[in-house]
Structures are given as structure tokens and as C-alpha cells.
């Protein structure tokens, strides 16, 4: 477990940039944190770091948004799926090569691949605390150098 305290949007961009390059075009990030913690903000920064030009907006309404680019970004928001266990077809998304970001991942924990980078974002006064937990070799190596 690693903890990183962030106090500005620039620092969010820097962290996203670092994570984006360590992912090397493929991987799963699971984000948690209250409404307004900054999950979508972080995903926007990550998308920018991946070279995606489109405006990345909240996927709450559509559940899944796909951004095509050299490295595709799959942005899932499970906010509306609380208390449901149904086949939503997300397994296919997790099999794709590209960066997959899941917000409110607890709600679909049973269908998520085991290996992933979990990031919890918490507000602490004016700062944001990123708690990063790696599961699996690739992600443990990432956590090491973050």
C-alpha cells in the first residue's frame, strides 16, 4: 500500500502521467472514493496522459464510455449498479487491450479481474489522499516506483 498526498490539479496530472506510462498501454485501474472525491477528474487526467483528445465526461449515465486512441480508454462507472448482480457484458471489456478504469468498483467486485491497481481517493481538508494498492506482479512493480 502506498499513500500519495496531492494538493493541486497539476499534481493530479503528474500522477496520472506516471501511471499512464507505467501501464504501457494495458491495465485495470479500480477507483473508489465518495461522490466528488475526484475519480472522474483523475480519469480525465489519465486520458490526457494517454493522448486522448476527446473530452472525457462522467460515465454515470451511460455506465460505459469508450474513447478510441492509440491506447483506447474504457471508462466504466458502476454507481448505478449498486445491489445488482447481473450479466452486463463487462467481461468482454476487461479482455480488451487498453486502459480500463472502473469507478465505484465495489458494486461489480465479483466480475472484476483479480489483478489490478486499486486507488482510493479521499478528501483531507484541501488535499486529496490517493491510497494505492496493487494486486498482481505487474501492478506491484508499478506501485514500487510510484
Amino acid at each position: 500500500m502506498k499513500q500519495i498526498v496531492i494538493s493541486s490539479l497539476e499534481e493530479t496530472n503528474e500522477l496520472a502521467q506516471k501511471i499512464a506510462s507505467l501501464l504501457q498501454g494495458d491495465g485495470l485501474l479500480c477507483l473508489s472514493g465518495d461522490l466528488g472525491a475526484g475519480k472522474t477528474t483523475f480519469t480525465k487526467a489519465l486520458g490526457k496522459a494517454l493522448g486522448i483528445d476527446d473530452v472525457i465526461t462522467s460515465p454515470t449515465f451511460n455506465i460505459l464510455k469508450i474513447y478510441e486512441g492509440d491506447i483506447p480508454l474504457y471508462h466504466i462507472d458502476a454507481y448505478r449498479l449498486e445491489g445488482l448482480s447481473q450479466d452486463l457484458g463487462f467481461e468482454e471489456v476487461f479482455d480488451e487491450t487498453g486502459v480500463k478504469v472502473v469507478e465505484w468498483y465495489d458494486y461489480i467486485a465479483d466480475i472484476l479481474p483479480k489483478e489490478r491497481l486499486e486507488i482510493n481517493i479521499a478528501l483531507d481538508k484541501d488535499n486529496r489522499v490517493f491510497q494505492i494498492q496493487a494486486i498482481g506482479k505487474k501492478y506491484e512493480d508499478m506501485e514500487e516506483v510510484l
Binding site: 472522474t40 477528474t41 480525465k44 473530452v55 465526461t57 462522467s58 454515470t60 449515465f61
Partner: peptide, 10 residues
């Protein structure tokens, strides 16, 4: 112009 984050209805 468009929303940069949440849609208004959301």
C-alpha cells in the same frame, strides 16, 4: 460548448 464533467441531468 459542452460539459467538461457531469451532464446537467446527472
Amino acid at each position: 460548448g459542452q460539459t467538461q464533467d457531469d451532464a446537467i441531468g446527472e
